[in-house]
Design a protein around this nucleic acid. Structure first.
Lengths: 245, 245
DNA sequence: GGAAGCTAATTGTCTGACAATTTAATTGCA
DNA sequence: TGCAATTAAATTGTCAGACAATTAGCTTCC
């Protein structure tokens, strides 16, 4: 583990990169203990605060965890699926909100990915997933539900569909795509009529999954994608015409 | 921006979370300047090193960038697609390597997602994407190529396919799925025969994309998925039989 | 008017210290 | 001997103050 004296970056960034590389490359395995802060400072010829800044960078990426006390220190952290979901959702959400990604593009990506899950979900779905989907449809049918809660339930429905594929890696990749859409969906105000159209399509999807009919599920998802895109376009058009006034 | 005195977490983690929430929620917009480290220390009633640790955590997530000098400081960073790709690939790779994800599960996720891109790619691919795919096929046809380089070229080929869909959000989500497979693919030693089978399928895929034939591309991808899964199973079986000796 | 230098603000780094926490060893006692 | 309480040691968490490095803007001088 060496540093590049000519690098333009901070020492703490260089040290974090050096240690991070060891972890990613597998030279430091899960639960291995890093040298103490004092030893790292000695090794890299820097002060302890600089080492600490480097360790905090790694901790922010969930690459290490720290423990106080006599046998404490920094340990290589096993990246759990839960942690990865969280990072994935945060990054995806920020990416969409900060880059003026159009509703169309985000929507297309989301439904393209989701349709990839449908056949697997139809083949493998368990009762738990069917229950989650039916529960969310019931929630969505309450006319008193706020728009935000409707969108949250929409996300929960689609995550049940994704999880039904029974592939945690797939669920991880889809988590960001589905969750990051929520702020965009919130921007669309749902009329009673569009809500019922969405609920109908959700019911068709759930029914097809229950019947293990992949083709029907795909068709319904495809229709939902088209319908959602249309809603988005209507809202955008309405906004533009209001802006002209 | 307040801290919870009862929290079990580090002060730097709490401060990072507080500022991070402001950014994610949009209260701090892109390119906004955060207060100076001294002001933040004053605001949160902590020392400057503690504030700095918090800022380094945020920097590690690409949420902020810092600049030295008179008009310097910490600024909310626009998360670029490039940065997001990088984080996505790192996280996906670690997730697979640290959680003993089986080759089957990772492979299934990857090809399911990739097949979602095929129809879009067939419809929209430009000459640049076709060129990239053809170039990689040529690279792969060199018998002197090392297994590592063959896998790297394989990844490049598939990324061209993904990028051909012309949807950056889709490319972002797929980047992790495709790149994170490389270490797993490296574990499979390719015989000359399996290489030629893969190259044939790549050629069929590239041809179908060039002809804008989505169905043919999907069929070839599907075959490639099956073939890759088979290769993985053979390698695992051979290992187990060796282990029994 | 322009170039050089000065000043102020800010982050980057260092030193040293103490507090809090946890484990292990030691001691004292029954 | 066995066990409980105490002590010691190691480690991270936090603080205070200082100086170096960098950068923008202002001032001064030619």
């Amino acid at each position: 583990m060496k540093l590049d004296p000519a690098s333009a970056k901070d020492l703490s960034a260089q040290i974090a990169a050096a240690i991070g590389d060891e972890i990613v490359s597998g030279k430091l395995i899960v639960d291995a203990r890093l040298p103490s802060e004092a030893e790292l400072a000695e090794h890299f010829q820097v002060s302890r605060p600089t080492v600490r800044e480097a360790l905090k960078r790694l901790a922010a990426q969930s690459l290490i965890r720290t423990q106080r006390g006599a046998t404490g220190g920094a340990f290589v952290n096993r990246l759990s699926f839960e942690q990865a979901y969280g990072q994935q959702i945060t990054t995806s959400t920020l990416l969409l909100s900060m880059n003026a990604v159009s509703f169309d593009v985000a929507c297309e990506a989301r439904y393209a990915l989701e349709r990839a899950c449908a056949p697997l979900c139809a083949a493998r779905r368990g009762e738990a997933h069917l229950d989650r989907m039916r529960t969310e449809i019931a929630v969505q049918s309450d006319p008193a539900l706020s728009d935000e809660d409707f969108c949250a339930s929409d996300v929960a429905f689609h995550r049940a569909l994704v999880d039904g594929a029974g592939n945690p890696v797939l669920s991880y990749h889809l988590a960001g795509a589905v969750e990051a859409m929520q702020p965009l969906m919130n921007m669309i105000t749902f009329t009673a009529r569009s809500r019922s159209a969405i609920i109908d399509l959700h019911s068709r999807i759930a029914g097809a999954i229950a019947a293990q009919d992949a083709a029907a599920a795909d068709a319904a998802l495809s229709e939902l994608a088209e319908y959602t895109l249309g809603l988005g376009r209507d809202v955008m058009a309405a906004r533009q015409s209001r802006a002209r006034d």
